[in-house]
């Protein structure tokens, strides 16, 4: 399999995943016994003290169904749903912030989420792999097991516990960071930029800590296994220094499964980022989703989940396409 075949196959899978993902998003809410339109009408009816006439309700229902994309039978809905998303990226208007289009809301929030998530993931991945490499390469030394212990302690802690603990520790007991983050709006100035960084530090640290533990553990396991390989022994007999063996021999080989693992775990990393945003009131996709979920703003929810699926699938694709650069075996076949 050459590089071209590899890329073509991967892109094929990408579109299949997108298609299945979008179909699930479409079907799930429609299979649910609850109809958001009914809920919304009920809400309006109670606000109007039941004074709405039957005709008014029928009219309202048909307008709402058009807005939600619930007109026609399931297949017609499905086709128009795909058409709207693929060609015009249109999720309809938000109901809480009518008539603001959902896509605009999401595009405002996306840079926040991506900025925080990318920075935190890269830092966690690099740091975790370095610590894991050292712990694995020197796994016979006592000091290395301390490094692994850090991983064991950090890894099983769920995101939400980590986030709440960080809030408790660094914003309440030691008030280094603000309890609730404030983010300036409007034109970006150096001052405002500093504020954004300062307010993003706490959620950022939480995300790094959360990803850190797993990277240590899995890199350590891989490094231990790789250190036992014959080619590492050969390098030692050849007279290669400890540093060369660790970086050029063990790290390069142990890196490959770690890249694959990162691509596969992106969905979970993304989940964690959403949750972190909700707990820290960070103005990204996660916060939008939480507000929308509480206010029953379904168009926003569907838009956010569709973007999430596209974002995660695309990030996975990019990582996998970088793989041939790291693995010469794919390039030279």
């Amino acid at each position: 399999m050459g590089v071209l075949a590899f890329v073509a196959k991967r892109i094929g899978i990408y579109f299949a995943v997108l298609f299945i993902g979008l179909t699930i998003t479409f079907l799930l809410p429609r299979l649910m016994p609850i109809n958001p339109v009914d809920g919304y009408i009920g809400q309006l009816q109670s606000r109007a003290n039941g004074t709405m006439t039957a005709e008014a309700i029928t009219e309202l229902r048909s307008t709402l169904e058009t807005l939600y994309g619930l007109k026609g039978d399931l297949f017609t809905q499905y086709v128009s749903y795909l058409k709207r998303i693929v060609f015009s990226f249109d999720f309809g208007p938000s109901f809480t912030y009518y008539p603001q289009p959902v896509s605009a809301m999401i595009f405002n929030a996306l840079p926040w989420t991506l900025g925080l998530l990318l920075t935190a993931t890269v830092i966690a991945w690099l740091l975790g792999n370095m610590v894991g490499l050292v712990a694995g390469y020197f796994h016979k030394k006592k000091a290395a097991s301390i490094l692994e212990f850090v991983g064991i302690l950090l890894y099983p802690i769920p995101y939400y516990i980590l986030a709440v603990s960080m809030l408790l520790l660094l914003a309440y007991i030691f008030p280094i960071f603000p309890l609730s983050a404030t983010f300036p709006v409007g034109q970006m100035t150096p001052e405002k930029f500093g504020m954004v960084i300062y307010n993003s530090l706490l959620p950022g640290i939480t995300l790094v800590l959360a990803g850190f533990g797993w990277n240590i553990l899995s890199m350590k396991a891989l490094a231990v296994a790789t250190t036992e390989e014959a080619y590492v022994t050969y390098a030692r007999l050849k007279g290669a220094s400890n540093w060369t063996r660790m970086t050029r021999y063990v790290f390069r080989n142990a890196l490959l499964p770690q890249v694959t693992a990162l691509a596969l775990s992106l969905g979970m990393v993304f989940n964690g980022a959403l949750l972190t945003e909700m707990i820290f009131s960070y103005p990204g996709i996660g916060l939008i989703m939480r507000t929308a979920a509480n206010g029953g703003d379904y168009n926003v929810l569907y838009g956010a989940i569709t973007i999430s699926i596209i974002a995660v699938a695309t990030a996975g694709l990019v990582i996998d396409l970088l793989y041939p650069l790291l693995d010469p075996r794919i390039r030279h076949k």
Binding site: T25, L28, M268, L274, I305, V312
Partner: peptide, 9 residues
């Protein structure tokens, strides 16, 4: 691949 949390939300 599909992120679980948004669906659950």
């Amino acid at each position: 691949t599909v992120p679980l949390l948004p669906i659950l939300i």
